[in-house]
Write a protein that binds this DNA or RNA. Structure first.
Length: 261
DNA sequence: AGAAAGCCTCGGCCGC
DNA sequence: TGCGGCCGAGGCTTTC
Protein backbone atom coordinates (compact mmCIF):
# COMPACT_ATOMS: atom_id res chain seq x y z
CA UNK A 1 0.00 0.00 0.00
CA UNK A 2 2.62 2.57 0.73
CA UNK A 3 2.93 5.01 -2.10
CA UNK A 4 4.29 8.51 -1.78
CA UNK A 5 1.37 9.81 0.33
CA UNK A 6 1.70 7.09 2.94
CA UNK A 7 5.46 7.40 3.13
CA UNK A 8 5.05 11.13 3.56
CA UNK A 9 2.88 10.49 6.59
CA UNK A 10 5.55 8.11 7.91
CA UNK A 11 8.00 10.95 7.44
CA UNK A 12 5.83 13.26 9.51
CA UNK A 13 5.68 10.64 12.25
CA UNK A 14 9.41 9.98 12.16
CA UNK A 15 10.06 13.71 12.36
CA UNK A 16 9.37 13.43 16.08
CA UNK A 17 12.57 11.49 16.73
CA UNK A 18 14.82 14.24 15.39
CA UNK A 19 17.39 14.92 18.09
CA UNK A 20 17.00 11.53 19.74
CA UNK A 21 19.92 9.14 20.18
CA UNK A 22 19.65 5.56 18.99
CA UNK A 23 20.57 3.05 21.67
CA UNK A 24 19.69 -0.08 19.78
CA UNK A 25 18.57 -1.26 16.37
CA UNK A 26 17.30 -4.62 15.20
CA UNK A 27 16.15 -6.15 11.93
CA UNK A 28 15.06 -9.58 10.77
CA UNK A 29 16.83 -11.24 7.87
CA UNK A 30 14.36 -9.90 5.30
CA UNK A 31 14.44 -6.31 6.45
CA UNK A 32 18.24 -6.53 6.41
CA UNK A 33 18.41 -8.18 3.00
CA UNK A 34 20.07 -5.21 1.31
CA UNK A 35 22.71 -4.90 3.99
CA UNK A 36 25.98 -6.78 4.15
CA UNK A 37 24.73 -8.91 7.05
CA UNK A 38 21.71 -9.04 9.37
CA UNK A 39 23.82 -7.70 12.23
CA UNK A 40 25.01 -4.75 10.17
CA UNK A 41 21.93 -2.69 11.02
CA UNK A 42 22.47 -2.97 14.78
CA UNK A 43 26.14 -2.16 14.38
CA UNK A 44 25.63 0.84 12.14
CA UNK A 45 22.80 2.54 14.03
CA UNK A 46 24.03 2.23 17.61
CA UNK A 47 24.88 5.51 19.29
CA UNK A 48 23.88 7.71 16.35
CA UNK A 49 21.69 10.73 16.81
CA UNK A 50 19.01 11.65 14.32
CA UNK A 51 19.75 14.98 12.68
CA UNK A 52 16.85 15.23 10.26
CA UNK A 53 14.15 13.18 8.59
CA UNK A 54 13.16 13.41 4.94
CA UNK A 55 11.72 11.44 2.08
CA UNK A 56 12.52 10.84 -1.56
CA UNK A 57 9.72 9.17 -3.47
CA UNK A 58 8.75 6.13 -1.44
CA UNK A 59 12.04 6.06 0.45
CA UNK A 60 12.10 7.34 4.04
CA UNK A 61 15.42 8.88 5.08
CA UNK A 62 16.85 9.44 8.56
CA UNK A 63 19.99 11.55 8.51
CA UNK A 64 22.24 10.78 11.45
CA UNK A 65 25.66 11.98 12.47
CA UNK A 66 27.60 9.94 9.96
CA UNK A 67 25.24 7.80 7.93
CA UNK A 68 21.87 8.03 6.26
CA UNK A 69 19.42 5.36 7.36
CA UNK A 70 16.66 4.51 4.90
CA UNK A 71 13.47 2.48 4.92
CA UNK A 72 11.61 1.01 1.95
CA UNK A 73 8.16 -0.16 2.89
CA UNK A 74 7.39 -2.63 0.12
CA UNK A 75 3.71 -3.46 -0.28
CA UNK A 76 2.56 -3.76 3.32
CA UNK A 77 5.05 -1.87 5.46
CA UNK A 78 3.82 0.60 8.10
CA UNK A 79 5.88 2.76 10.42
CA UNK A 80 4.91 2.82 14.08
CA UNK A 81 6.17 5.10 16.82
CA UNK A 82 5.42 3.59 20.21
CA UNK A 83 2.44 1.79 18.74
CA UNK A 84 1.06 4.80 16.93
CA UNK A 85 0.64 4.13 13.22
CA UNK A 86 1.86 6.48 10.54
CA UNK A 87 -1.40 5.90 8.68
CA UNK A 88 -5.01 5.09 9.43
CA UNK A 89 -5.30 1.59 8.07
CA UNK A 90 -4.35 -0.87 5.39
CA UNK A 91 -6.38 -1.44 2.26
CA UNK A 92 -5.02 -4.90 1.67
CA UNK A 93 -3.82 -7.10 4.43
CA UNK A 94 -4.91 -6.99 8.02
CA UNK A 95 -6.42 -3.94 9.61
CA UNK A 96 -4.64 -4.76 12.76
CA UNK A 97 -1.13 -4.85 14.04
CA UNK A 98 0.45 -7.97 15.43
CA UNK A 99 3.67 -8.27 17.38
CA UNK A 100 4.76 -11.13 15.15
CA UNK A 101 4.72 -8.77 12.16
CA UNK A 102 7.14 -6.29 13.69
CA UNK A 103 10.23 -6.89 11.59
CA UNK A 104 12.73 -4.39 12.91
CA UNK A 105 13.27 -0.92 14.24
CA UNK A 106 15.13 1.54 16.38
CA UNK A 107 15.11 2.22 20.12
CA UNK A 108 16.06 5.59 21.51
CA UNK A 109 17.72 6.81 24.71
CA UNK A 110 14.44 8.42 25.80
CA UNK A 111 12.71 5.05 25.63
CA UNK A 112 10.75 5.58 22.42
CA UNK A 113 10.63 2.96 19.68
CA UNK A 114 10.28 3.39 15.94
CA UNK A 115 9.35 0.07 14.33
CA UNK A 116 8.40 -1.38 10.96
CA UNK A 117 5.28 -3.54 10.80
CA UNK A 118 5.28 -5.63 7.64
CA UNK A 119 3.21 -8.81 7.24
CA UNK A 120 4.52 -9.65 3.76
CA UNK A 121 8.16 -8.98 4.39
CA UNK A 122 8.98 -6.86 1.37
CA UNK A 123 10.15 -3.87 3.39
CA UNK A 124 13.90 -3.19 3.49
CA UNK A 125 16.38 -1.20 5.55
CA UNK A 126 19.25 0.50 3.76
CA UNK A 127 22.32 2.44 4.81
CA UNK A 128 23.52 5.34 2.67
CA UNK A 129 21.11 4.61 -0.20
CA UNK A 130 21.91 5.63 -3.76
CA UNK A 131 19.59 8.59 -4.27
CA UNK A 132 20.93 9.05 -7.76
CA UNK A 133 18.88 6.01 -8.76
CA UNK A 134 15.67 7.94 -8.11
CA UNK A 135 13.99 10.51 -10.31
CA UNK A 136 12.59 13.82 -9.02
CA UNK A 137 10.07 13.62 -6.21
CA UNK A 138 6.45 13.54 -7.35
CA UNK A 139 5.20 15.85 -4.57
CA UNK A 140 7.44 18.72 -5.62
CA UNK A 141 7.63 18.07 -9.34
CA UNK A 142 8.02 21.10 -11.59
CA UNK A 143 6.60 21.23 -15.09
CA UNK A 144 10.11 21.27 -16.48
CA UNK A 145 10.97 18.11 -14.54
CA UNK A 146 7.75 16.49 -15.71
CA UNK A 147 8.69 17.09 -19.33
CA UNK A 148 11.93 15.26 -18.66
CA UNK A 149 9.97 12.40 -17.10
CA UNK A 150 8.12 12.07 -20.41
CA UNK A 151 11.22 12.26 -22.56
CA UNK A 152 11.71 9.12 -24.62
CA UNK A 153 14.91 8.00 -26.29
CA UNK A 154 13.49 5.91 -29.08
CA UNK A 155 10.20 5.21 -30.77
CA UNK A 156 6.97 5.77 -28.87
CA UNK A 157 8.52 4.79 -25.59
CA UNK A 158 6.88 2.66 -22.92
CA UNK A 159 3.17 2.88 -22.11
CA UNK A 160 2.54 6.09 -20.19
CA UNK A 161 1.46 4.10 -17.14
CA UNK A 162 4.79 2.23 -17.08
CA UNK A 163 6.71 5.49 -17.32
CA UNK A 164 4.81 7.04 -14.41
CA UNK A 165 5.73 4.02 -12.26
CA UNK A 166 9.41 4.07 -13.22
CA UNK A 167 11.05 5.24 -10.00
CA UNK A 168 14.27 6.13 -11.80
CA UNK A 169 12.31 8.72 -13.83
CA UNK A 170 9.76 9.85 -11.26
CA UNK A 171 9.96 8.95 -7.59
CA UNK A 172 6.83 8.21 -5.61
CA UNK A 173 3.99 7.24 -7.94
CA UNK A 174 2.74 3.69 -7.38
CA UNK A 175 0.06 1.62 -9.03
CA UNK A 176 -3.03 3.19 -7.51
CA UNK A 177 -1.90 6.80 -7.84
CA UNK A 178 -0.79 6.08 -11.41
CA UNK A 179 -4.20 4.74 -12.38
CA UNK A 180 -6.00 7.58 -10.62
CA UNK A 181 -4.08 10.36 -12.35
CA UNK A 182 -4.61 8.78 -15.76
CA UNK A 183 -8.30 8.31 -14.95
CA UNK A 184 -8.60 11.98 -14.04
CA UNK A 185 -6.60 13.10 -17.05
CA UNK A 186 -8.71 10.98 -19.40
CA UNK A 187 -5.69 9.19 -20.83
CA UNK A 188 -5.43 5.56 -21.90
CA UNK A 189 -2.64 3.97 -19.82
CA UNK A 190 -1.43 1.99 -22.84
CA UNK A 191 -0.60 5.10 -24.85
CA UNK A 192 3.06 5.31 -25.83
CA UNK A 193 4.70 8.04 -23.74
CA UNK A 194 5.93 9.95 -26.78
CA UNK A 195 2.46 10.00 -28.38
CA UNK A 196 1.10 12.47 -25.83
CA UNK A 197 0.37 15.88 -27.31
CA UNK A 198 1.36 19.11 -25.56
CA UNK A 199 -2.19 19.52 -24.27
CA UNK A 200 -2.24 15.99 -22.95
CA UNK A 201 1.05 16.49 -21.16
CA UNK A 202 -0.37 19.57 -19.50
CA UNK A 203 -3.52 17.69 -18.54
CA UNK A 204 -1.47 14.88 -17.05
CA UNK A 205 0.79 17.23 -15.12
CA UNK A 206 -2.24 18.97 -13.62
CA UNK A 207 -3.88 15.65 -12.91
CA UNK A 208 -0.74 14.38 -11.14
CA UNK A 209 -0.70 17.40 -8.86
CA UNK A 210 -4.44 17.36 -8.29
CA UNK A 211 -4.42 13.63 -7.55
CA UNK A 212 -1.64 13.96 -4.98
CA UNK A 213 -3.26 16.96 -3.26
CA UNK A 214 -6.76 15.53 -3.27
CA UNK A 215 -5.90 12.02 -2.11
CA UNK A 216 -3.47 13.47 0.40
CA UNK A 217 -6.37 15.44 1.88
CA UNK A 218 -8.64 12.39 1.79
CA UNK A 219 -6.02 10.37 3.61
CA UNK A 220 -4.44 7.86 1.26
CA UNK A 221 -3.53 6.52 -2.17
CA UNK A 222 -6.43 4.09 -2.02
CA UNK A 223 -9.08 6.83 -1.81
CA UNK A 224 -9.16 7.77 -5.47
CA UNK A 225 -12.31 8.21 -7.57
CA UNK A 226 -11.58 5.20 -9.77
CA UNK A 227 -11.14 2.81 -6.85
CA UNK A 228 -14.79 1.74 -6.74
CA UNK A 229 -14.31 0.34 -10.23
CA UNK A 230 -11.20 -1.74 -9.62
CA UNK A 231 -12.72 -5.11 -10.36
CA UNK A 232 -13.64 -7.19 -13.41
CA UNK A 233 -16.80 -6.01 -15.14
CA UNK A 234 -16.94 -2.69 -13.31
CA UNK A 235 -18.63 0.42 -14.68
CA UNK A 236 -16.87 3.77 -14.77
CA UNK A 237 -18.12 5.98 -11.91
CA UNK A 238 -17.64 9.03 -14.07
CA UNK A 239 -19.49 8.20 -17.27
CA UNK A 240 -20.75 4.63 -17.01
CA UNK A 241 -18.30 3.31 -19.60
CA UNK A 242 -17.00 -0.23 -19.32
CA UNK A 243 -13.84 -0.50 -17.25
CA UNK A 244 -11.02 -2.51 -18.75
CA UNK A 245 -8.02 -4.07 -17.11
CA UNK A 246 -4.63 -5.39 -18.16
CA UNK A 247 -1.11 -5.72 -16.83
CA UNK A 248 0.84 -2.63 -17.79
CA UNK A 249 4.28 -1.83 -16.47
CA UNK A 250 4.06 -5.03 -14.46
CA UNK A 251 1.03 -3.92 -12.46
CA UNK A 252 -2.68 -4.57 -12.70
CA UNK A 253 -4.17 -1.54 -14.42
CA UNK A 254 -7.81 -0.43 -14.65
CA UNK A 255 -9.12 2.24 -17.00
CA UNK A 256 -12.38 3.44 -18.56
CA UNK A 257 -12.83 2.45 -22.19
CA UNK A 258 -14.99 5.53 -22.78
CA UNK A 259 -13.28 8.60 -21.38
CA UNK A 260 -9.65 7.46 -21.24
CA UNK A 261 -8.28 7.89 -24.75
C1' DA B 1 -7.21 -20.05 -5.59
C1' DG B 2 -5.56 -16.09 -7.17
C1' DA B 3 -4.14 -11.74 -6.73
C1' DA B 4 -2.02 -8.03 -4.11
C1' DA B 5 -0.61 -0.90 -3.55
C1' DG B 6 6.78 -2.54 -4.10
C1' DC B 7 11.31 -3.70 -5.88
C1' DC B 8 14.86 -6.48 -8.16
C1' DT B 9 16.91 -9.39 -11.65
C1' DC B 10 17.13 -11.38 -15.95
C1' DG B 11 16.52 -12.22 -20.71
C1' DG B 12 14.70 -10.80 -25.11
C1' DC B 13 14.73 -7.63 -28.46
C1' DC B 14 14.60 -2.86 -30.17
C1' DG B 15 16.80 0.55 -32.67
C1' DC B 16 21.01 2.64 -34.04
C1' DT C 1 25.07 -8.17 -37.85
C1' DG C 2 26.68 -6.40 -33.31
C1' DC C 3 25.85 -4.00 -29.23
C1' DG C 4 24.08 -1.32 -25.46
C1' DG C 5 20.29 -0.33 -23.17
C1' DC C 6 15.34 -0.47 -22.67
C1' DC C 7 11.37 -2.92 -21.18
C1' DG C 8 8.37 -6.53 -19.68
C1' DA C 9 7.96 -10.86 -17.24
C1' DG C 10 8.70 -13.27 -13.25
C1' DG C 11 9.96 -13.85 -8.53
C1' DC C 12 10.06 -12.55 -3.86
C1' DT C 13 6.68 -13.10 0.49
C1' DT C 14 2.52 -13.68 3.06
C1' DT C 15 -2.07 -12.83 3.54
C1' DC C 16 -7.01 -12.73 2.77
Amino acid sequence: MPEILEVDSYRALAQRVVGATITRGWADVYLAKKLSAPAAWSRVVRGRSVKSVSRRGKLLLLETDGVTLAVRFGMTGVLLLDGEAGIEGLFYGPHEYRAQWLRGGLEFADGRRLVVHDPRRLARFEVDPDLGALGPDALTLTRREFDRVLTVERGEGPPIKARLLDQARLAGVGNLLGDEMLFRAGLDPRRGTATLTGDERTRLYRSLNQTLRTLGRRGGSHLGDHMVARFAGATCPKDGGAMRSATIGGRTTFWCSRHQK
